[in-house]
């Protein structure tokens, strides 16, 4: 964190952010019978040049959270502020200006690029929507610069997406996200569609960009090892709620929430010598439906430590003075480090 972080307003802040999707029944007269509580009261802040990782399994609401943070979807309750401004209260030109500061890299480089546009057109398209960003005469040069920044050959600007490999396509997606000079890049599973040997290239590129351009990043992934590699701070999500946040070291070496520890125990490590799967911490059962989450602590149905107290909902709070809040009535002892870390 930067020294000025305490004084400057955060780049991105979400407060009690909530998104419920209604469940309706009836054909002619639809009526609401429930709601999928995809995101349910999430607080988070991202400071300048900081990287926040959001980890969770499928169905935990991490992609819904991404579209709320990007102001692509209206929250049911709660607020998002970007540089202190609320995107949902703005419209027209003001909203467009605000959007320039936050850009997104999508998961699938095969479906997120228009197959009928050339690489140059794809990377230059943001300038058509935000003509004030770069004067027309400079756009060709800027596109070439962007391609070079992400490690692509500017002479390939007239090629179509199918002429690029998966890794190169993801680089195009990153170049497009950088076109407007954002301060924050939101990456939703940016490497999970790529082959192992190519993932590392894209991860290294993201890391270089973040450092060279002093970009803040929100990095959403199901893969703990990938998140570990890129992020300063990490938030763990379960069923629409954040259950723990902390620095990379705090989360990986001294997790406080039983869910975080279970996730770490389940993640396979590429070392046959370490093959003693941490059976004691493996979870039973599946993720409950977000349409009818358990009362109280949402993790209690799968938690090995659940007790009566867990029927009341725990708040995300800090103990022991460390900046490492967790939503658990019985947080794990942080004095014992995980053995395989």
């Amino acid at each position: 964190m930067l020294p000025s972080a305490e004084t400057a307003p955060p780049l991105l802040r979400a407060t009690a952010l909530t998104r419920h999707f209604p469940i309706t029944t009836g054909v002619l007269r639809k009526h609401r019978t429930g709601a999928v509580r995809a995101v349910d009261g999430v607080d988070l802040t991202v400071h300048r040049a900081e990287t926040l990782g959001i980890v969770g399994e499928s169905g935990c609401g991490k992609s819904t959270l991404a579209s709320l943070l990007m102001a692509l979807d209206q929250p049911t309750a709660g607020t998002v502020t970007i540089d202190g401004q609320d995107p949902f209260s703005l419209s027209g030109r003001e909203l467009r200006t605000l959007r320039r500061r936050v850009q997104m890299v999508l998961q699938d480089p095969y479906t997120s690029l228009n197959p009928r546009m050339t690489a140059g057109q794809i990377v230059g398209e943001p300038f058509a929507i935000h003509p004030e960003a770069v004067p027309k005469a400079d756009r060709g040069r800027r596109v070439a610069e962007l391609l070079e920044t992400v490690g692509l050959d500017p002479s390939h600007r007239d090629r179509y997406p199918h002429q690029f490999s998966g890794g190169q396509r993801q680089r195009l997606g990153i170049a497009r996200a950088l076109a407007l000079g954002p301060r924050l890049l939101l990456c939703d599973e940016p490497v999970s569609a790529l082959d192992v040997s190519v993932q590392a290239q894209v991860l290294n590129l993201l890391q270089d960009l973040r450092r060279d351009l002093r970009l803040a990043c929100v990095f959403i992934s199901h893969d703990l090892a990938v998140v570990q590699h890129l992020c300063d701070r990490i938030a763990v999500m379960y069923l629409g709620k954040i259950v723990e946040t902390g620095t990379r070291e705090q989360i990986y070496t001294t997790p406080r929430h039983p869910y975080t520890r279970a996730l770490l125990a389940a993640a396979p490590v590429p070392d046959p010598g370490r093959r003693a799967p941490d059976d004691a911490h493996l979870l039973e059962g599946d993720l409950p439906s977000p349409a009818s989450p358990p009362s109280g602590c949402r993790f209690r149905t799968r938690c090995p430590h659940a007790r009566e107290q867990c029927l009341t909902e725990p708040e995300l709070r800090t103990r022991d003075g460390a900046d490492h809040p967790t939503a658990c009535h019985f947080p794990l002892d942080t004095t014992t480090r995980r053995t395989n870390a």
């Binding site: 040997s197 993932q199 090892a225 570990q228 770490l264 490590v269 395989n340 870390a341």
Partner: peptide, 24 residues
């Protein structure tokens, strides 16, 4: 060897990755 050097690992926090160049 290249594959092993290019996967991010939970047991090696913050270690830099050495990717394989190019694509399959």
């Amino acid at each position: 060897r290249g594959l092993l050097d290019s996967v991010p690992r939970l047991d090696r926090l913050g270690k830099s990755l050495v990717p394989i160049t190019g694509a399959p």
